[in-house]
Amino acid sequence: MITVLFFAQLREQLQCDKLQLDDYPQTVAELRAMLGKKSPLWSELLVSDTALAAVNQTISHDQVSLNSGDEVAFFPPVTGG
């Protein structure tokens, strides 16, 4: 199982802060594609758009592989400071 978290406007637009997936694909890119099948909005925000991904709390590119117990997060470009 993996946990998927969503933050900021992405969380608001998707109306979802957390998913737990027993079945998950091998990479971040495939996870984006899998979640994108939920609806055109999910596809737009996770596949077409530039949501950043973090795997186990480190910003990660799309080819990073996923393993059981991983925490994956999707979020918009950061605006702190």
């Binding site: 406007q9 910003i59 997060a73 918009p76 950061v78 702190g80 400071g81």
Partner: peptide, 26 residues
């Protein structure tokens, strides 16, 4: 540290304004 905080640390600002609330764009 500030330059990297602004581009790497996962914070997001939502502004409260006279016309409603708006997420700040990076």
């Amino acid at each position: 540290i500030m330059d990297f905080l602004k581009t790497q640390a996962p914070f997001w600002k939502k502004e409260t304004t006279d016309n409603g609330e708006f997420w700040v764009v990076a």
